[in-house]
Structures are given as C-alpha cells and as structure tokens.
Design a protein around this nucleic acid. Structure first.
Lengths: 359, 359
DNA sequence: CTGAAAGCGCTTACAG
DNA sequence: CTGAAAGCGCTTACAG
C-alpha cells in the first residue's frame, strides 16, 4: 500500500460539531420554553394546539437544526423504517439495478435499506439474517441471480415479512420476476412485423427456467403468425463463446437454408453470434436480423451493429418489490404468489428496424 | 403486470411468531428469576457474578431465542453499528464489488451498511444524507465512479466520520483509490519480461486522472527497461469502438512498423482492439501481445484470446475503507490523505505468457 | 454477588 | 391548549 498526503491526523469532524452534541427534542423544548411533549406534538403535527405556538416551536427546531433520532422513534413506534436486502449475486448483473431501484423508491418514503452481500455460504446467510433481526428491520427483500433457485435462507424462523425478487418464490410467499415469456414474445413478434419469416432461437442451458419461458414466447409469437419454428432451439452456455460457435454453424449452411432472423437468449450469446457472422461477411441485420435479451448496455450498445434486445426493467422490479413489502409491513392484504413484471423491447439496429419505425 | 399464484392472502409470518411478540431482556430476567440488570450483565459478560448464574441466564436466553434489540442498545451506547454507503455509480462497474467487500467485512464485525443510491441530483444527495444522520449511522463511505470527481456532497455539515472510495478525496480527508500507476507499471513490465520491445499505449480521455497515471506507469516501466515509448499514447473514448478504430489504424501499417505489444487503458478498449486485429488476420498474442486494465470478467474472459489485465482489487478497496472508517469511529488516530491500494496483474493468454510462466 | 434507579431520545395516552 | 408520567428495550453507575 502506497501512502500519500502525509501529515495531520484526519480532521474528520468539521466545526467541532461532534455527533454526541446533537440537539435533542429536550434542547428544542427548552429553547422554545415548552415541555418535551408539547414540542413533540408540535413537531409531529398531532394533537391540537394554537397554530402560533406550533409554528414557533417548529421555527426553533429548524433554526437549531433539530433532527429526531430515528432509533428512539423506532423504539417506541415498533417500526424502524429500515429494510434488509439479501443478495447472493455479487457478480452484479442483476443486483445493482434491483438494489438501486429499491433504494431510491424506499428513500422517497423515508425508509433505508441495508445491503447484505452473501455468497452461498449458509453460515454467512444465517449471520446476516440475525443481524437484520437484531437491527429490527421491518422486512426483507431476498434477491438472487436465478429465478428458479432459492437462497439457502431458512425462512420459517424469520420474524418479518419477506419478498423475493429474481429468485424462486416458495409456496405462499410473494415474489417478483421479469416476464420472460412475454419479453420473448415481444421480441419475436417484432421480428415478424419486420417481415422476417425464418426465425431461429439460440439460448442458454435448459436447466434454467428462463430458457424454457423464453422459448415458449418464441413459439407463441411464431404460431400466432402461423410461422414454423426454424429448427429446434439451440441450447448451450450463456456465453459469447457459445453464440460464436452457433454463428459458425450457420455460416457453413447454404445461404438459402439459413434463417433470416435469430432471437438470442441473452446479449452475450447475441454478441458472439453477431461476431461470428460478421467475420464471415454475413451482414446483420440485412442478411440475418438479431435480437438479444437482457439489455446489458455494455454489450448491447457496443455490439456492431448496436443490439436490439429485451430490457427486464430490473429497477422497476426492485421498486415494486419494495412498495409491496411496505404494504405487507403496513398490514395491508397482499395476494400471495409470483408476479411477472412486463419487459420492454429496446430497439436499436440489429433487428433491422429503421429508426422511424422503432416505435 | 401478469399475476400468477392466485388465492390466499400471503402467509408472511410463520408459526404465528409476530415481530411484536419478540422476547425481551425482561422476559429473560423473569424466566431466570433475576433482575433485568443482572440479566444484562450476565449476557454481556461484564461485572462479576458466579459462573453458575451467568451460565444459567445465558442458557435461558438461548432457549427463549433472545436477541437484544440493537436500536435500544444503540440508544444508550451512542453507537449504532451501522454505516452508510453513498454511491452515484448505478452503472455498476465499481460499486458492486466495493459494496460487497465493504458489506462482508463489516458484517464480520457486527456492523451493517445502508445502501444509498444517488444519481447526481443534489436534492437526492441531501435527503439521503439526512436519512443517514437521522438513522444515526456511525460513519459514511462515499463511493464514486471516477477517482477525480467529488460527489455533490456538502461535507462540512456532516456530523460524522467519512471515508472516500474511488472518488476524489478533499483536503484533510481520507480516501482509497486503486494504484493506477503501479498497476500500469506491472502490466507493462510483464510485457517487457516476455521480450516485447515496441510497446504502445491506447487509452481513455485525458480528462480522467486515471489516464495520466496509467500512462506514467507505462512510461516508467519502459524507461526502466531503457525502451522508448512506441509513439505517443493514443487517447480516445473508454469504448470498444475506440479500441476497434485504434486497431484498424495499426492494421494499415507496414507490419515492420507495428508495435509488438499494446497496453490498453481498459478492457473495453482492449476488446475492441483485439477484434480489429483478429478481423485482419493479425494474431494475438503472437504478432501483437495485448494487456488490458480493469479485469472486468465479462470482457476479459470472453475476449478471444482471454485477456491478461490489471485487477483493481475493488473488494479489497471496500474492505479497507470500511476497516479504516471503523478505526476513525473508534477514535483511533488515522492519517489524512489518499491511499493507493495495490493492483494485481491477472495473467490470461493475450499477453503471450505460457501457462507455466504466468506466476 | 445482586438489584433499584436513572437515563439514552423519543411518543402516546391521560390528566389538568 | 399544555404538561407530568409512563414506557419502548436496553446499559451503566451506584447502593446494598
């Protein structure tokens, strides 16, 4: 470790304003010449009192920079206005947008969220959940990297409401996942509308439920258009490499036998696939149109040409999960089950849509 | 929004264990037949008392599933064992590893971290900081997407210790950034050791301080080896596109005039650069060795051939920042200034090192 | 060795 | 309309 900026011990607290010197409601009450309970009522807009005193007390509090201690409040109110977010996706594709969507929506409602990064070590999961219980969070959102895998979380013992996002949702629980089937349907329908007729599908491992759902969306769009599937869906890894290999396979076909469009199960596959075509002089989208899935910007925008793809609205997923969790905490009735939130087709260039028709 | 799993209202609380029925220290004391203060002392291993009663009380607490209310504890202890993480990088390249490293290290020490996702809207920043003050976090880590940009955080008014990560560090404050110069030096030295002599540099916009530092590392490694710089560093966008264009430029050179190695300012540039070479039949690493910067797995591992690159040890950065913040909170003296944490060279194939020599 | 009291910073009935 | 009292769940001196 290299050090720079040698010298003085850090001056961490400005103006000599020590955290322990923070102004309390007692200070406000004294300064305003009223009792603590009156101050409390004035500040919280409850009880009846002359508007004049209420305003005076509020002005004093404002001037003194009074900020109520949320922990003291929580202690009496039996409500901490905090949430825990448990996630085992430190890889980051899904967690960050979900966490950001959740965090922002919650911040707007005065609730803060604890981030608990857990690898798949059950011991760590256990201790993180205990920490959340000790801190008396009002609820938990559990987020994963696969829609069909549960986290190693022993839920029956958890004393608070839980909502699942992008993870398997146990019976009787509440979960939010992207609508894979609907997103795939939208993508393929878009290709059909653009006049493509021989639409293939290249996707990830069959062990992922998302693979099955996206395949169903592909089939539904084709059958509604009375088009046949172009061969069976090609299943492999979720990787550029697999997309590349799949592309090479099409390259060797007689051009008349080739598909005129390919719906890829994710953006990485689409990227590898397009690279393979480009290397062999097959033009995208002119010869073969391509649509991906994920809208992982860093891939989708960098692909040559830029990739049309399905956006899973992950921020919205996090937002909805948080709002629903708040409802649960408030005791509102919430129906059990898994919600599938709509995806959005992000039209760029690889599908062959002209700018003007890209609704 | 599609709904599935219709029916019963969610059964969110198992075993009828309501949060409000949680066992308190009063319950434990009663069950053990001692006073609350005795129970407290027994549980906290302080004061003197017979080992027998201490163990009995602990056993009772254990059996009842007693978990002390952290908020009550915080209220008296003037210490919440919580931290706030403020970040404006929702794009996610840097935040997630940093957050994960921080969160895990803190969890091991019993402290939990609030995630505050802020776009660059100053109003949101303000309200998030207020929320952290209200919640009485013990300290703040401020994390950004650029080492040379400060967040729009009005720090003089913050009542607690702050540490900066991957963001500009104001005078007198404490910050952690990756050692860009050292990482670049390691990368280029590695190329030199592998026998490369004409080593070029393609990098991002000069407005980034990281660009200047990485360039200095390149120059130092070359000058120590008594090698000249291969032309001036080529500066452009942090994008695949720019890397690709730079690659095309080298392609048109007479092969004798070309560099035999290129150090790229980030992995995206390296990726685009390699793609351009490959398309023109120039072999990597045989003809031109390539090293990147970032170790963004999703690029580095998918590049053909897999990319040798500099890892910035972001998790470690988050971990160190957290530990230092804890020291600050504990009142330990901490030197002001910015720390540059060592980077680590991740050797794959694009540099031409044989597996065995990839230390 | 053990317990009664005070207090952390707030809110909420309940009397005046 | 206002304030004294009790209490949220703990810990920490301070007496016994």
């Amino acid at each position: 470790m290299v050090e720079s900026g040698i010298g003085a011990v850090a001056d961490v607290l400005a103006d000599g304003q020590d955290a322990s010197l923070r102004v309390t409601i007692k200070d406000v009450a004294a300064a305003a010449g009223v009792s603590i309970s009156t101050a409390s009522k004035a500040l919280n807009e409850r009880g009846r009192m002359s508007g004049e005193t209420r305003e005076r007390i509020q002005a004093v509090a404002q001037k003194m920079g009074f900020r109520p201690n949320a922990m003291a409040r929580a202690l009496v109110g039996q409500r901490s206005f905090t949430l825990g977010l448990l996630t085992n996706d430190t890889y980051g594709r899904f967690t960050l947008p979900i966490a950001a969507g959740l965090s922002v929506a919650m911040a707007d409602r005065g609730v803060s969220v604890f981030l608990c990064a857990i690898d798949d070590d059950p011991e760590r999961v256990r201790s993180n959940i205990e920490a959340m219980e000790d801190k008396r969070v009002d609820g938990l959102v559990v987020s994963g990297k696969r829609v069909d895998r549960v986290l190693p979380v022993d839920l029956p013992t958890v004393h608070m409401p839980v909502v699942y996002v992008n993870a398997a949702c146990p019976d009787g629980a509440i979960g939010f996942v992207p609508d894979d089937e609907g997103g795939a349907y939208a993508a393929v329908s878009h290709l059909v509308e653009l006049g493509r007729r021989r639409i293939a599908h290249i996707t990830g491992p069959r062990s992922f439920s998302a693979v099955g759902l996206r395949e169903q969306g592909w089939e539904r769009a084709l059958s509604e258009a009375a088009l046949p599937c172009f061969e069976e869906a090609l299943s492999g890894e979720w990787s550029e490499r697999f997309g590349y290999e799949a592309g090479q396979r099409f390259v060797t076909m007689a051009s008349a036998d080739r598909p005129d469009a390919v719906f890829c199960g994710n953006d990485q596959i689409a990227r590898g696939f397009i690279d393979a075509l480009t290397l062999s002089g097959i033009r995208v989208p002119q010869d073969i149109a391509v649509v991906g899935f994920d809208n992982w910007e860093i891939f989708a925008a960098a692909t040559r040409p830029p990739l049309t793809t399905v956006d899973m609205a992950l921020k919205e997923l996090g937002r909805q999960a948080g709002i629903t969790l708040l409802d649960l905490i408030d005791g509102k009735p919430v129906e059990a089950g898994q919600r599938r939130l709509a995806c959005r087709l992000m039209v760029r260039e690889s599908c062959g849509a002209s700018i003007s028709s890209s609704d």
